[in-house]
Structure formats: structure tokens, C-alpha cells
């Protein structure tokens, strides 16, 4: 947590932490997204602790939006079309999982579920290196090319969620290292973020397993500085 608080105090953009009256705390970090239609930068917030109520509300919004898009206009049914984030929350182990979200215009533009129990890194099997595992990540349907083609609204949502997960990895002693299984449509995105592809994982439906090393996490943070 020390590193996270330090970044929040000394970050380039305005970062702030807010403590609730309860012992749990909510961290809000100011970030920037890109309006894909106009190209302008828009201030948004990265929330490091998304609540069950917020997830339930977002699930309703995203499901409603998905169902409003005529299936015949889609070139293919998006890979995450049947996901249910509230079910993911209810199936998660409380205290060992964290949900991150990016809020803009009062709505969550993307969510990420992070497993807080460090796992052994595949980058160096014989060391004590560990990674934090991204259980799930999804951007809102209106930000996905699969639903919107060239009319997707906000860019940078996936990148900012990964940057938030890197901060959590640092806070949990994993030095910014992350692991995840990419769905096929997003593989190019993670490779552009310097994730290393370990190929199809037979134990996870053949999804590619990717890892971001601590050194590449540092480079990614520098490269994403605007």
C-alpha cells in the first residue's frame, strides 16, 4: 500500500485518497481516457474498490446495452457477451479478491477482478518471483469494437485498468508483475503492453497465458505517461 499512497501523493496528475468512516478505504485516482470520436482527453476516475452495489448496477447497464444491439449487426457474438459480473462477485472469495473500475459520466467504463493471493511466476520458475493474477477484465460494451465497430466511445480503458492492477501488484509485493489469460480478441492488446505470451493453456480452455514482468511493468508505466 505504501507505494500506492506514494504515487497518489506524488503523481503527475491529481491523485487523491478518501477514507470512509468504516475501516475499509476507497481509493480514487484521476486518470485520462480518450474520446475516440473527437480525440480529446477526458478526465476519469480509477476506483480501486468497486462495491457489490456498483457491480450490480453496472451489470444491469451493460446487459441492457448488449441486448439493445441487434445481433444481426454484429459480425460475431462478442466473447464476453454472456458474462455476468455480479455472479463473478458472488463466486469470488471476499477479502482475497478486489474489483477495480473506471468511472466516467457516472458509469463504469470497464472492470477488472484481481486475485490478491500472489502466484508463482512462469517467467522465472526457479525463483521466488510472484505475480498477481487478473481473473477477469472487460471494457463496457459501448467501448468495444465488437459492438460499436468504429463508433466505440472511450479509449484507454483497458490500459488504465492494467496500470491500476500494476499498482496493486506493487502494493502486494509482486513488483508490478501480472498474469492473465487473454480472450482471443484481446491478445494483440496485451502484447502491445509488453506482456509475454506463454501460448495456449490446456487447463484453461486453450486461452493464451500472458505475463508482465516487473521490469516491463516499469517500462509500461513510463510509456503510458502522457
Amino acid at each position: 500500500m505504501r507505494s500506492l499512497k506514494k504515487r497518489c501523493r506524488k503523481g503527475r496528475t491529481e491523485h487523491r485518497l478518501r477514507w470512509l468512516k468504516t475501516s475499509s478505504w476507497v481509493a480514487l485516482m484521476s486518470i485520462w481516457l480518450r474520446n475516440r470520436q473527437t480525440g480529446e482527453q477526458i478526465a476519469a476516475q480509477l476506483e480501486l474498490h468497486v462495491s457489490k452495489e456498483q457491480i450490480a448496477e453496472t451489470e444491469c447497464e451493460w446487459t441492457g446495452y448488449r441486448s439493445s444491439v441487434p445481433v444481426e449487426t454484429l459480425s460475431a457474438i462478442p466473447e464476453s457477451n454472456d458474462w455476468n459480473w455480479l455472479a463473478k462477485y458472488e463466486a469470488s472469495l471476499q477479502g482475497l479478491t478486489q474489483f477495480l473500475g473506471i468511472r466516467l459520466e457516472g458509469k463504469l467504463q470497464g472492470m477488472l477482478q484481481l486475485d490478491l493471493v500472489p502466484r508463482a511466476s512462469r517467467t522465472n520458475r526457479y525463483s521466488v518471483d510472484h505475480v498477481l493474477y487478473v481473473e477477469y477484465l472487460e471494457t463496457a460494451p459501448w467501448n468495444q469494437k465488437a459492438y460499436m465497430d468504429r463508433h466505440a466511445r472511450f479509449g484507454g480503458v483497458g490500459l488504465e485498468l492494467i496500470l491500476g492492477a500494476i499498482e496493486m501488484s506493487v502494493a502486494h509485493g509482486c513488483h508490478g508483475s501480472l498474469g492473465l489469460h487473454s480472450l482471443p480478441g484481446a491478445l494483440g492488446f496485451y502484447l502491445s503492453l509488453r506482456f509475454k505470451d506463454y501460448g495456449p493453456d490446456s487447463s484453461e480452455e486453450g486461452l493464451h497465458y500472458l505475463e508482465l514482468s516487473p521490469s516491463d511493468a516499469v517500462i509500461l508505466k513510463k510509456e503510458s505517461a502522457k
Binding site: 460475431a76 455476468n84 470497464g110 468495444q144 483497458g158 490500459l159 480478441g185 496485451y190
Partner: peptide, 22 residues
């Protein structure tokens, strides 16, 4: 930074998950 935004824009969807579909 622009390359990363472009990659995000060109991907069909930005997703990661253990159970691929549902």
C-alpha cells in the same frame, strides 16, 4: 502511448478471463 491506444482500439474486445465464455 499512441501505439497502445491504437492496439486497444483495433482489438474486437478488451477482455481477460479464465472461463472463456460463460
Amino acid at each position: 502511448y499512441e501505439q497502445m491506444l491504437r492496439a486497444e482500439e483495433e482489438c474486437d474486445s478488451i477482455t481477460a478471463g479464465r472461463r472463456a465464455k460463460f
